[in-house]
Nucleic acid binder design. Structure first.
Length: 758
DNA sequence: TCCGGACAGTTCTAGACAGCATGTC
DNA sequence: CTAGAACTGTCCGGA
């Protein structure tokens, strides 16, 4: 089938596809067209990664738009939203407009109504439905990318429920689900009333194999000898790929391992670099160093300078995209990564090496083997269509038995079936409340009827389980005053709020209890701890020694906590309290302007983790403020005066990472926590001061950085932001330098003054 | 002049040990 | 990441 054979698309699209070098549709694409994808038919496409899934989605969406409809594309990760947007914008020339919606703010998303194609995460779609976004009613086509993720215990149920809701709102909705090859794609097709397109076809060859000793055994029976002296397996494989001018991706099971591997592999890659590549890599390394002032950042830059990199969630997102881009540009020759990369943005590579196929699992208390599906997802990153002649995916065996084991377990094995994780209390807690609050059900019977539309219902034979958990959850929601239940189910004002804020009801209950327990104005620490102990904030790991340290701190700060501290002998609860305290102190350090590298060191986290915690805290503090207002509205006493303003102020401090006096300055664009402090020390204490400031003082405070100084003056609305012929004020420069070392109480009793004597 | 032994300093190695992935609103 | 082994180099006394 050729693009010209396609009908129902916007004018010019078939020709455009042809001009993009698509002569012939891939078999799965042709199959999807035959199944009626361009005529509004629902399809589940279970096909390997990089075999043209995106075009299937595009055909469905574009034909839907051509018929005057609106299409929604659901992505599993925020990082993928912008990638997809960029791909779809290719069709803007044919009159198709594209919008993206992710993240905490803009709750109604009304501006999206004018878009033809909307890209959003499943949580965002769910949130938009809860907030009653009008355009949702007018959707004609929905695409769910990576739909096998309904198997995920945390986020799977959201996707499942969201699809059920969308299909309920609009019974004629065309549903297109894109999935990796899984064991039970048929079940998903049944669930979605869709035609199944199920194939193993790939545009380029994927050879899978296992390395044992010197020999690389492939699934087609061939073997390849690797020369390696005493070099490690991974290094030898990377070298071997480089000899053939290809790049590698190495999957390992921990951040530390990823960093250590990158460091070692840098020795290998650095032998292969041309002088030009070295120059370009030096530039990338410099950019990486600029992102954050931490050891992680430096280590990454060092590796990148030699053509290697690591990749994990501890990196700031700028780090990640710099690395991904340099890898796609073939400057970086190898990335060692945690599984983040397998699910993330597109980074194909000639060879994929799955070095660690076991991972630590806290629930089991030991190492467990990865799912077949997960390993196959990693494998799927091998081979770049149109660039590589083939892709290779390799596991590493330590002994002879393992060689056979790995073949059986991963190379030959079929991926496990996808199972719905909906019937678990945490998932149902939030989705039942939302289902009732947004009017999808007003009795228990209707609720169960709605849940019948989920994948869970089509999969389970076990009658009664859903009813039982639902009963428990309703009881919980009623007890916490989110729902009222007589013969009908109805959300309370508070319940509606919680649903709209997209909070886990358990988080909301914790916050509400804490706020009610407040007498007087809460301290920042009190609020940090309150939000840190909700289930919506992931716990920081307590390391050995931490228990004592934070127990002591807990007693020291006991009066500040909102709500009462559990007893030291209540084991689980007390531990949770301490690990929330650890998070709370991280936030306190952040808002007292402690340097990023000190924070990463102190808590054993990466720069990306700090930003993650900060973002979550911002979101939860905002929710806490809304909840406080809600409680005040319908109770006469409830929450003391000044609580809402205290929360708002605290949230702003978290947002900017500054102490109170810098809030005004840090609000100016291009002024972060560091620059704000420097300006402040130089006597510029507010936005108004900055507007009237002597440019030479500003220049001095910013250590003579002319461009930034100019931009900042402009953003502050300064009369004459030009810095031509302006000299930096030496006094201001000295103040600014002092500010860099001396603003911080590091909690260790003024130890930081040590630095002054060295 | 040569040799062995005492000693300090350095490098290498094995074993114990802690720690371990991700993510939306 | 540390303890201990193993190795290296220096100095000194004795023949």
């Amino acid at each position: 089938m050729k693009p010209a054979d396609l009908s129902g698309l916007p004018e010019g699209v078939p020709e455009h596809l042809q001009s993009q070098g698509i002569e012939e549709l891939y078999p799965p694409q042709a199959e999807a067209v035959e199944a009626g994808i361009t005529d509004g038919e629902s399809v589940v496409a279970s096909v390997p990664t990089a075999s043209g899934k995106t075009l299937i989605a595009e055909l469905a969406m574009l034909s839907s738009v051509a018929r005057g409809g609106t299409a929604l594309y659901i992505v599993p990760l925020r990082a993928l939203a912008s990638e997809k947007k960029a791909e779809f914008e290719e069709f803007e020339q044919f009159g198709v407009s594209v919008g993206v919606s992710t993240g905490n703010y803009d709750s109604d998303g009304d501006w999206l109504a004018s878009k033809d194609v909307i890209v959003a995460t499943s949580e965002k779609v769910d949130s938009l439905v809860r907030n009653g976004a009008q355009w949702v009613d007018d959707l004609s086509c929905v695409v769910a990318d990576e739909v096998h993720l309904v198997d995920d215990p945390n986020r799977g149920p959201t996707l499942e429920v969201t699809l059920a809701k969308l299909r309920r709102i609009n019974p004629d909705l065309q549903t297109v689900a894109l999935s990796a090859t899984v064991g039970n794609a048929g079940e998903m097709a049944d669930w979605l009333d869709a035609t199944l397109v199920d194939t193993d076809w790939r545009p380029i060859d994927l050879r899978k194999g296992v390395l044992y000793g010197q020999a690389l055994h492939f699934d087609d029976g061939t073997e390849r000898e690797l020369q390696r002296g005493n070099e490690k397996e991974t290094a030898a494989l990377v070298r071997d790929t480089l000899d053939d001018d290809g790049s590698s991706l190495v999957f390992v099971n921990s951040r530390r391992n990823a960093e250590a591997a990158a460091k070692r592999l840098a020795d290998v890659t650095s032998e292969f670099l041309t002088p030009e590549e070295r120059d370009e890599l030096a530039d990338v390394a410099a950019e990486i160093r600029d992102v954050s002032d931490t050891e992680t950042s430096d280590d990454l830059a060092d590796a990148v300078a030699d053509g290697a990199a690591f990749h994990h969630a501890g990196l700031a997102s700028e780090h990640r995209s710099l690395v991904e881009e340099a890898f796609r540009d073939r400057l970086v020759k190898v990335i060692s990564a945690t599984p983040t990369l397998a699910a993330g943005v597109n980074t194909p590579s000639r060879r994929v090496i799955v070095r660690d196929w076991r991972r630590y699992d806290g629930d089991v208390g030991g190492m467990t083997p990865l799912d077949v599906l997960e390993v196959h997802q990693m494998f799927g990153r091998a081979g770049r269509p149109g660039l590589d002649p083939y892709g290779e995916a390799v596991l590493i065996a330590k002994n002879h038995e393992e060689l056979q084991e790995l073949f059986d377990q991963y190379v030959w094995a079929d991926p496990e079936p996808v199972r719905s994780k909906l019937a678990a209390e945490p998932a149902l807690r939030t989705h039942i409340l939302a289902t009732v609050a947004s009017g999808f059900a007003s009795t228990e019977a209707e609720l169960l009827q709605f849940l019948e539309r989920t994948l869970y219902a089509t999969q389970t034979d076990e009658t009664g389980r859903l009813e039982e958990v639902t009963g428990r959850v309703l009881e919980y929601l009623e007890r916490n005053e989110f729902l009222e239940r007589d013969d009908r189910l109805q959300a309370t004002g508070l319940g509606h709020r919680v649903s709209q804020l997209y909070l886990d009801p358990m988080s909301a209950a914790e916050i509400v209890d804490g706020l009610r327990a407040a007498d007087g104005e809460p301290t920042a620490m009190g609020l940090y701890h309150l939000v840190a102990r909700t289930p919506d904030m992931y716990e920081l790991y307590l390391r050995s020694g931490d228990r004592e340290e934070y127990t002591e701190l807990a007693y020291e700060r006991e009066t500040e906590f909102l709500g009462s501290m559990p007893s030291e002998f209540e084991d689980g609860r007390f531990e949770d309290w301490l690990s929330a305290l650890k998070t709370a102190r991280l936030l306190e350090d952040w808002t007292s302007e402690l340097d990023e590298d000190r924070i990463t060191e102190r808590y054993g986290v990466g720069p990306g983790d700090i930003r993650g915690k900060v973002e979550t805290a911002e979101w939860l503090l905002n929710a806490a403020e809304q909840l406080a207002m809600e409680i005040r509205r319908d109770e006469r006493e409830g929450v003391p005066d000044g609580v809402t303003t205290a929360i708002r102020e605290t949230r702003k401090r978290v947002e900017y990472g500054v102490q109170e006096e810098l809030l005004d300055l840090a609000g100016v664009r291009n002024v972060g926590r560091k620059r704000a402090r420097r300006l402040y020390e130089a006597g510029i204490e507010s936005r108004a001061d900055l507007r009237e400031a002597d440019p030479s003082v500003v220049l001095g405070a910013l250590r003579g950085r002319r461009k930034t100084a100019e931009k900042i003056l402009e953003n502050a609305g300064h009369q004459n932001p030009s810095l031509d012929d302006v000299e930096a004020d030496a006094g201001a420069e000295a103040d600014a330098n002092a500010a860099a070392t001396d603003t911080v109480d590091d909690g260790a009793g003024g130890q930081q003054s040590l630095g002054d004597f060295e």
